[in-house]
């Protein structure tokens, strides 16, 4: 089972906060031996979800955790906001749908970049997205 080795809580209130989360994820991924492709996948996912929490969710926070299961390192990031939530989850996850006239590929694309993806949201109750990625052998 995976242990949490270390954790960092970071606010997401401004664009700069989103960048800080992304940078922290990059630093950690590089330190933990993620290759360039895995690092880009993780940080891009963090960028998408951080921006969603800020733009669609009105701000919130991110929790970054460094995991270890004895042989591999993992990075888990949880994004939480107290915004309006997502009404039509199926449509959003299918991709290409956006209420902000943008591409609508953030959530559907992020899901393809990480090994674990979990989303909880209800109208009015905010949104929580958890992603996790592990080092390859």
């Amino acid at each position: 089972m995976a242990d949490v080795v270390q954790r960092w809580e970071m606010p997401i209130r401004t664009e700069d906060d989103v960048i800080l989360v992304r940078r922290k994820a990059r630093m950690l991924a590089q330190e933990r031996g993620f290759d360039a492709f895995a690092t880009a996948a993780l940080t891009t996912a963090a960028s998408e979800l951080g921006r969603n929490a800020l733009v669609h969710g009105g701000g919130g926070g991110a929790l970054i955790e460094h995991l270890a299961d004895g042989t591999r390192s993992g990075i888990r990031i949880t994004f939480v906001d107290r915004g309006p939530g997502i009404a039509d989850m199926a449509r959003v996850l299918a991709g290409g749908y956006s209420t902000a006239r943008s591409l609508g590929l953030g959530l559907s694309g992020t899901r393809r970049l990480v090994e674990e993806f979990d989303i909880e949201s209800a109208p009015g109750a905010g949104t929580k997205v958890v992603i996790c990625k592990w080092t390859r052998y």
Binding site: F37, A40, A41, S108, G109, R112
Partner: peptide, 14 residues
């Protein structure tokens, strides 16, 4: 464009 950026964008569908 870097290799990892291209791979990531294509995987995301853009």
């Amino acid at each position: 464009m870097r290799a990892e950026v291209a791979a990531t964008l294509v995987r995301m569908g853009f």
